[in-house]
């Protein structure tokens, strides 16, 4: 079995965001970076599948040099080799361009199974995986919260609104986009982090297909909510809050 997992690097969302000089994206200075949360579930599922079937697991990320970090994390979780599609301006690529660049690499490799996250935490477009599958001409199921492989086919649970699920069976090759809670992503252990340093990490130029849409402006949302902000030490916060609850709600009556 030949498996590909696509991971993206995203900023920690608890960061205080500033804008870049042109006002067309967030500034990438002074941010903590991590692997997109959805992709951690994708990597875990890919590793579990490889453990079940044997074969090779490739982890791919498109972006600037710093994205080798999430690739290394996936290698430490159990991927066999890494592919870094180098692109210093990757934030300017729209989902179609990202998917096209990944497809340009993946086409010749004939993967049996591809995993992506359901969405990236910064853009949240939920497009790259499904477009990639279309470009490669393979089946895809999005938003999976359960995955079982046997006899050349995969049965997945696909999450719908309200916690309802659809049960879907699909033959390989196929692509799956992974939702939160699909599994329990493992932590890379120290020995595995050391081993990962010796694994192959290919650095390739990213193909540069044209984007079909572009971000012309990034801004802070206007504060609509008139939340009363309370600051101070715990005791005074508690005191103030109880005072407010007494006057504004009936729950303390």
């Amino acid at each position: 079995m030949k498996i590909l997992v696509c991971v993206k690097q995203v900023p920690d969302l608890e960061s205080k965001f500033r804008l870049n000089a042109a006002g067309t994206w967030y500034s990438d200075q002074d941010l903590a970076w991590r692997m997109n949360e959805y992709d951690e579930f994708a990597v875990e599922q890919a590793v579990q599948l490889k453990e079940q079937t044997g074969g090779e697991l490739v982890v791919l990320c498109l972006g600037p040099e710093r994205v080798r970090e999430p690739i290394k994390k996936a290698l430490a979780m159990g991927a066999d080799r890494g592919v870094h599609l180098q692109d210093e301006q990757s934030h300017e690529k729209d989902p179609f361009a990202v998917a096209s660049a990944i497809a340009a690499y993946a086409r010749a490799e004939n993967f049996d199974v591809i995993f992506t996250g359901m969405q990236s935490q910064d853009r949240g477009s939920a497009q790259v995986g499904l477009i990639l599958a279309e470009l490669l001409g393979i089946d895809a199921v999005s938003t999976i919260v359960g995955f079982v492989y046997g006899d050349g086919a995969v049965t997945v649970r696909r999450e719908l609104e309200g916690g309802q699920k659809a049960i879907i069976k699909v033959r390989l090759p196929a692509l799956f986009t992974c939702q939160l809670g699909l599994n329990t992503p493992r932590y890379p252990t120290l020995p595995n982090i050391m081993k990962a340093k010796k694994k192959d990490l290919a650095i390739l130029p990213a193909a540069a297909p044209a984007s079909l849409s572009s971000t012309v402006k990034v801004a802070y949302p206007e504060k609509k909510g008139g939340a009363l902000v309370l600051e101070g030490d715990a005791a005074s916060l508690a005191e103030q809050l109880i005072g407010i609850l007494k006057t504004k709600t009936t729950v303390l009556n």
Partner: peptide, 9 residues
Amino acid sequence: VCNAKLRRT
């Protein structure tokens, strides 16, 4: 973008 901390056009 970014959990609605920013928005883009």
